[in-house]
């Protein structure tokens, strides 16, 4: 497998962190991984994105103009990156915040009410976790759910680890698992 994944949203939505959690989980499952954020001037405008590559073998470039999967968490990210998904690829949309309908018909559109799921589970900040939960539900090759949950303890600073039970619950709900 060789999967190039984009996470995009606005600053504060945790898209960089979501990519990192996925990488740590996949690394734990024995995959090669790379993670690279957009940086510098680009990040001043309030938008954030990162590119994650997960592979059984060598990873070529950590950046790519086209993605197998795009996880978009706000409307500007949808507008910017819808066209960057490869034909046959997947586009995961945070439908809590995005009210624009994607136009592509050659890709699979997956809607996640990420903010609503997060709010209902008791967190204002875990929409990214809902997207991650859905991502590995529709793309189970990336990593196991257990590794994803465990990655939280590595990726999240000690100060915020107390929120991990909620994060895991949000991941499960996002992925359609009963909690």
């Amino acid at each position: 497998m060789y999967s190039e994944i984009l996470f995009a949203g606005f600053g504060g939505q945790g898209v960089i962190l979501a990519g990192k959690i996925l990488c740590i989980a996949a690394m734990h499952d024995g995959k090669n991984v790379s993670h690279i954020p957009s940086y510098g001037a680009e990040m001043r405008g309030g938008t954030a994105n990162c590119c994650v590559v997960i592979s059984d073998g060598l990873i070529a470039s950590p950046v790519t103009p086209k993605y197998d999967i795009a996880v978009v968490m706000n409307t500007p990210s949808l507008l910017k990156f819808e066209s960057a998904v490869r034909p046959g690829g997947k586009l995961l949309i945070n439908s809590s915040l995005i009210d624009v309908e994607p136009t592509r018909t050659d890709i699979e559109i997956i809607k996640v009410d990420a903010n609503d799921i997060s709010e209902k589970a008791g967190s204002h900040k875990a929409a990214n976790m809902a997207m991650l939960g859905k991502l590995i539900a529709v793309e189970p090759e990336l990593c196991s759910p257990e590794s994803l949950y465990a990655a939280l303890d590595v990726a999240i600073s000690e100060r915020n680890r107390k929120f991990n039970p909620v994060n895991i619950a949000v991941m499960k709900i996002g992925g359609g698992i009963d909690v």
């Binding site: 990192k20 990488c23 690394m27 090669n32 991984v33 790379s34 993670h35 690279i36 950590p62 950046v63």
Partner: peptide, 9 residues
């Protein structure tokens, strides 16, 4: 810059 910014195992 890519090597600088990318994370890998």
């Amino acid at each position: 810059g890519y090597l600088a910014q990318m994370s890998e195992p």
